[in-house]
């Protein structure tokens, strides 16, 4: 047996032992996200428009992560709508910034890996870099949206008559509780992977200026910043979607 399937099996076993049915669903969501990510890569390499691929697969990955991650209807639906809205706002930010920064494709530090490869492949790497940036933040958006909407759903359950203004305030409070730990998840998730790259920079004595304008460093840091910004935006966005939902439910009730 190869190592990756064996590790996959280990993960499946511990997930089922700890989480039961929910654990199996979590494993399924990871597997599906891998399949969708790989399918997205293949489609872009077959010259499908990267923007269309981003939108469709972005929504699919959000749906898989959210609906297989929790089974409370109010929580998942609210989180799903909110995270799609955040993804769209984020896309509107990523598009101009990626063009401005021009961090597409590869840098000098990649030249060893590129040896013997044809770079003239006719696919716009600018657009590929946008897909990459959006995809790398989707998990963080989904997770934050679920945490906020789960917290709010519980508050609504305990105080069914809560004023929407108060609920908005509560959403920000829940956000304040999760922002610290969420930032750490992102910081370590990204910086763990940068270890090799940063040793490279320090080892080869890059100056501060070289470092700050380096294509690969900037590409990575932009991804971290996009993730942080999207998580911050998820807090008011999820709260807003929840208040709209409550508002609609109450209006319907009054009409009855």
């Amino acid at each position: 047996m190869s190592t990756i399937p064996a590790l996959g099996l280990l993960l499946l076993v511990v997930m089922v032992l700890v989480g039961g049915k929910q654990g199996a669903l979590s494993f399924l969501s990871l597997l599906l996200n891998f399949i969708f990510l790989f399918a997205a890569i293949v489609l872009v390499s077959l010259h499908f428009s990267p923007m269309v691929v981003t939108l469709i697969f972005g929504v699919v990955i959000l749906a898989v992560t959210i609906f297989l991650g929790n089974d409370d209807e109010v929580t998942t639906q609210t989180a799903f709508f909110a995270s799609i809205l955040v993804m769209l706002v984020l896309l509107a930010l990523i598009l101009p910034v990626e063009h401005w920064a021009s961090v597409q494709g590869f840098g000098m530090e990649d030249s060893d890996d590129l040896e013997g490869m044809s770079l003239l492949i006719g696919i716009k790497f600018m657009q590929v870099s946008i897909v990459t940036a959006v995809f790398s933040t989707l998990g963080a958006i989904a997770e934050a949206a679920m945490a906020i909407s789960a917290g709010l759903a519980e508050i609504v359950q305990q105080q069914p008559k809560i004023a929407t203004k108060q609920l908005f305030y509560d959403g920000i409070t829940v956000g304040k509780q999760i922002i610290g730990t969420t930032f750490n998840t992102l910081f370590f998730g990204f910086f763990g992977g940068f270890l090799g790259l940063f040793i490279w920079y320090v080892d080869l004595h890059y100056s501060l200026g070289q470092f700050l304008n380096n294509k690969i460093f900037d590409a990575e840091i932009l991804m971290v910043l996009f993730s942080l910004i999207s998580v911050i935006l998820t807090v008011p966005m999820t709260t807003w979607v929840m208040t709209r939902r409550i508002h609609r439910v109450r209006k319907n009730k009054r009409a009855d």
Binding site: L30, N70, F106, D113, F135, G139, E143, G193, M223
Partner: peptide, 26 residues
């Protein structure tokens, strides 16, 4: 824990693997 663990694993998976997009296309 069981309702947080799934999304968290996906957060890391997307951070670790989305990065390989450009090279994989090449």
């Amino acid at each position: 824990g069981r309702s947080i663990m799934g999304p968290l694993v996906n957060v890391l998976f997307l951070i670790f693997v989305a990065d390989t997009f450009p090279m994989a296309i090449l």
